[in-house]
């Protein structure tokens, strides 16, 4: 392996960027591809596919054999609101392989008893997120119903290009939210990305069912997302 490739690969991984090392198994030459980099035709398609699926593997192409080793940052789910839905969502998301954390400044809600085994911050979201910024491999679900708590992290998630941004609330509530975010300087294109009403439409009714709908919507967004570079550039 080229030492420069190793350094570039490790730097991208440490920075939570999706990155692949493509090695020609014939002559041992390798190159690092950060998601969104241009890669020529046939090889490019396979690399793009590897980024989407997260699966590494050998590719036979024009009598050459390549190994594509893809490194995807572990998806992180940030839930704003230590509410009943979050109590169901947290263990489910954990089972599905997400790094889950719940943030709610209301100490009556954010108690360890209600969220055993879950990373929980009883602080304002902006304080927590300034220490651990959002990125394109994060999903954010805002479920407090309280604009004072939800709005700032929603804006942060849209600006960071999180692969999923969802907000709880009726269409009427959401219309008001759109107005507030607009006045906070968020572009219409970005606001459009908010999933609201939150969750896939499966007729969910109980908090646990709503949690299933939200998690399903997040997984759909993760597995069908397009390359992140376009959003980074935007």
């Amino acid at each position: 392996m080229d030492p420069a490739s190793l350094k570039k690969l490790n730097a991208a991984r440490a920075g939570r960027r999706a990155v692949a090392l493509v090695t020609d198994l014939g002559d041992g030459r390798d190159r690092v591809v950060v998601e969104g980099d241009e890669v020529a035709a046939a090889l490019g398609d396979s690399v793009a596919k590897a980024f989407r699926s997260g699966k590494s593997g050998v590719l036979e192409l024009e009598n050459r054999s390549y190994f594509i080793n893809v490194h995807i940052p572990p998806p992180r789910l940030v839930v704003i609101g230590a509410v009943h839905i979050s109590q169901a969502l947290a263990p489910m998301a954990k089972l599905a392989g997400f790094d889950i954390e719940v943030i709610d400044p209301r100490t009556a809600f954010a108690t360890p008893e209600r969220f055993s085994g879950v990373r929980l911050d009883a602080e304002w979201p902006e304080a927590v997120l300034s220490g651990r910024p959002l990125d394109p491999y994060c999903a954010l679900a805002a479920v407090t119903h309280d604009p004072k708590i939800d709005d700032i992290p929603l804006k942060a998630a849209l600006v960071a290009g999180c692969f999923y941004v969802g907000a709880l609330g009726s269409r009427k509530t959401h219309a008001k939210r759109v107005e507030r975010l607009t006045s906070m300087g968020v572009s219409a294109d970005r606001i459009e990305r908010i999933a609201s009403p939150i969750g896939l439409d499966i007729g969910a009714s109980s908090p646990a069912e709503i949690a299933v709908a939200i998690l399903a919507e997040i997984i759909k967004a993760l597995r069908t997302r397009s390359a992140v570079s376009a959003e980074r550039a935007a």
């Binding site: 190793l6 991984r13 920075g15 939570r16 940052p73 954390e101 360890p112 990373r119 929980l120």
Partner: peptide, 23 residues
Amino acid sequence: METMPQKTMPDNDPLTVAEEWMG
């Protein structure tokens, strides 16, 4: 409260170790 520091790289990550050794 359970503390789970968010780490981008697990301990003893082989490729990180390789870079250290190279250094």
